[in-house]
């Protein structure tokens, strides 16, 4: 359902060309839990940005559900993001001015659901992450783990087929990280495809597939090696 063929990303500044991604060939299937590892500056985030349609690639082909997204305009990409993709960030990225309810509401609004549907979805998602009782609270009144759970609720509210997670546990202590990770696994089991960038090898092993990015090149880590590394 997601496939990249010879995909490259080049950043062009005044006099320097930086190759962030070189000839990436990758296909992700429905129901995969893909972890992406690699050293800092290897191109992990660029990969995620392109996969999440936040950035355009420079050359090559990127198909999402068979559709070539490289040719799409801003509004079409926005619609795709809204309908198919959910995001979870290391910094949670909740809107500080809005309470939890309104934060989860944001993507639902862009989807154009009616009021009843939105309400129902917000309630059920917040209940799922165990924060239904704090709906009227502002993000600043929550702990980091709680904030990330709200972010997950927000990402899932639109029933996305993909969940893109950028170091979702990076800002959390290990106990909280475990909680968030279990939640992601549960979500994956219910059928949502997850791509998770992490530098934590232990977490990476819990994924069904792993890829490594090094100097802009992607290589699949075979399941066997996973066990060896473990």
């Amino acid at each position: 359902m997601l496939s990249m063929n010879n995909l490259c990303k080049v950043f062009q500044s005044a006099d320097i060309q930086t190759h962030a991604l070189r000839e990436v060939n990758l296909s992700v299937n429905e129901g995969d839990f893909l972890s992406v590892t690699g050293p800092s500056g290897s191109g992990k985030t660029t990969f995620l940005n392109i996969a999440g349609l936040l950035e355009n690639h420079s050359s090559g082909e990127f198909l999402l559900d068979g559709e070539n997204v490289g040719a799409l305009k801003d509004s079409a990409r926005s619609r795709l993001r809204n309908q198919k993709i959910g995001f979870i960030f290391q910094g949670f990225n909740l809107i500080p001015d809005l309470n939890l309810y309104d934060n989860v509401d944001v993507p639902l609004r862009y989807r154009g659901f009616n009021a009843r549907e939105r309400k129902q979805r917000i309630h059920s998602q917040l209940e799922r992450v165990g924060l239904a009782s704090r709906m009227k609270h502002l993000p600043a009144q929550l702990s980091g783990g709680q904030q990330q759970r709200v972010a997950i609720a927000r990402a899932l509210a639109t029933d996305p087929r993909f969940l893109l997670a950028d170091e979702p546990t990076g800002n959390l202590d290990s106990e909280m990280a475990q909680g968030v990770m279990s939640l992601l696994e549960e979500i994956n089991q219910q059928g949502t495809t997850i791509i998770m960038v992490t530098h934590d090898t232990e977490l990476a092993q819990r994924a069904s597939r792993s890829i490594q990015i090094k100097d802009g090149r992607v290589s699949e880590v075979p399941p066997l090696m996973k066990r060896v590394i473990a």
Binding site: G52, L54, D74, S75, R77, S78, R79, R81, N82, Q83, F87, N93, I95, D97, V106, P107, Y110, R111, R154, T158
Partner: peptide, 16 residues
């Protein structure tokens, strides 16, 4: 800007 970036990620187009 951060909020605007996030809203874009969540599906808001520039015109929206």
């Amino acid at each position: 800007s951060p909020e605007i970036g996030l809203r874009q990620a969540l599906g808001a187009s520039k015109s929206t």
